[in-house]
Amino acid sequence: MSDRHSPDVLVRYTPAERLRHWLVAILFVCAAASGLALFHPALFWLGGVLGGGAWSVVLHPFAGLAMSLAFYAFVRPLWHHNRLEPRDRAWLRAMRDVVDKREDRLPEVGRYNAGQKILTYVLAAALLALFATGIVIWRVYFSNYFAIGVIRFSALLHAFAAFVLVVGIIVHVAAAVWVKGSVAAMTGGTVTIGWAFKHHRAWFREMIRPSGGR
């Protein structure tokens, strides 16, 4: 049919998915900057992102809450793509080849590789913990309802979960910048078939089947 004339690209993210992703990303920058400002004095200047220390305290919980909800909305429809499969174990074992850019030695990857799948779970778990503990330490509205021991534990767990989230996002951003074409997938929505063939071959084959796509 008209295959030869169709552009050699595949749709990876719909406009709605991209908007949700970047909403999460913007809210993450707000929440992370204001949160890190309160976490370590060396980062207090990051409070300037939301207008200073006092504004960070006021806005951080709202930014964090909105981020959690936006993340849920973004990830829920994609969640089933992240089910771990036997071949993911082999991919993880070959981590050395992953960082060495030896993708020819890696097992075939579906829509998401094992690293992306695990990252999704890690981010979801961290956000769940941040949400729950964040309510407890939200001084103006909620802290008065909780015992001091619960507040102290929540403050510690909130910092730990935020640390996990930030490290996860650093890895996510580093990988996205490193694998050329990924940022374009989340901004323009499409990837070239070569990109899909190279990085997500099983997904590529699924997509080019005559009945392929989602």
Binding site: D8, V179, W195, F197, K198, I208
Partner: peptide, 19 residues
């Protein structure tokens, strides 16, 4: 980590075979 022309070519070949 860039996608090279041969990746595109291989992908193109495989796509045509499928179709």
């Amino acid at each position: 980590n860039e996608t090279r022309d041969e990746d595109e070519d291989q992908a193109e070949r495989e796509k045509e075979q499928t179709h």
